[in-house]
Amino acid sequence: MDGAAPATVRRALDSREALPGTGGFAGELSGALVRDVLGRYPIFSEPEDPTTWSFDHRDLTNPRLVPAGCRRTEAGDEQVWTLPELPLVSSRTEAIKSVRAAVEGQLSALPEDTPVAFSGGVDSAALGAYLDGPLYVTGFPGSHDIEAAQSAAQLLGKDLTVIEVSHDVLEAAIPEVARATSRTNAMDVGIALPLYLTAKRAAADGYDTLAVGQGADELFGGYEKITRAPDDHRVAADTVRGAAREVIATLADQLPRDVLALRAAGVEPVAPLLHDDVVEASLRLPENLLVSPRGERKFAFRMAVREWTPDPIAFREKKAVQYGSLIARELDRLARQAGYKKRMDDHVGQYIASLLD
């Protein structure tokens, strides 16, 4: 069992408890395959044959991902766990306190020297400010992420390892990431590449884990489309709270990409912000603590972690990693230099696929 003790998963299976106090799990239990409600760990099997399975799709001939919250047997997939509807906390003070306690509880449980993938935004800074491990940032020279990470590290008084990417490094890593994740679309590869390159450096420095800030945007209302519900076409929900739950459901597709990229680089991801305790605290937040009346996204999370994260970082807005690192821009540049023009359908994806041939 990956991520949790089999006995814990068995109790969750018997009780149908979706958030049993783990950081996620996936594995085989009593002849069936199971994957937690958020899909924090991937597990695959051959179609119609759950006895032939693996945590890595490359071990299988025709891998099929077990859906989040499901139990897979020869009879098919059964939805066992769904994201619970929890009563909201009416007190702003108590809600923020519960988020702080959940996040700090997970950070305090990690070894202090755990390395951190650090981009200078509030999510990774909450980890980097609390832990004493090395900080790593990846990007092209002059990128927003490198500049943000350098200024944040200076505020925290901590050393930062900068992994500057070149076109040669990027082009060599693209097929490795595409094969590891089984994805060739520009968005997924652009997100996975900086994670992969950061993890490779941490592994080369002798670390076998890497702390990442994944999950905060989804859990705490970090996306602009959440703030605009119901007027944003990218979400179907008609409330901010509903849009947040809709976005949380997308983690099941995103996290296998990240986990597989990090493992391919030689480290095991540590995602303290995705622990059940943090998830539960987020599900109890009213809308005005996801998005403040002034439009500040992730408001409760920012207020919670300012206990140990300086305000200039806690309330900083940051670009998505594929843009902040300039990876997306340079992927496009490499594709066009290779003859894949923008007028072509999915020109970057075609370029990535060509590197696998």
Rank of each mutant, 00 (worst) to 15 (best):
A4K: 05
A5R: 15
V9D: 14
L13G: 14
A18W: 13
L19P: 14
L33A: 07
R35D: 09
I43Q: 10
T51D: 13
F55I: 09
D59S: 08
P63Y: 07
V66Q: 08
P67I: 07
P67W: 09
A95K: 04
S108G: 03
P111G: 07
V116C: 07
F118W: 05
V122M: 04
V122R: 01
G133V: 03
V137H: 04
T138W: 04
F140N: 12
S143F: 11
S143A: 14
Q150H: 02
A152K: 05
A152I: 05
L155H: 11
L160C: 00
D168L: 13
L170M: 15
A172G: 15
R179E: 15
R183A: 14
V189S: 12
L193Q: 14
Y196K: 12
L197N: 01
K200M: 13
A204N: 08
Y207A: 07
Q214D: 12
G221H: 02
D232F: 03
R245V: 10
E246C: 08
A261C: 10
A261I: 03
E268G: 04
V270K: 00
L290K: 08
P293K: 08
E296S: 03
R297E: 07
T309I: 09
K319S: 12
G324P: 08
S325Q: 01
E330K: 11
R333H: 10
D345I: 00
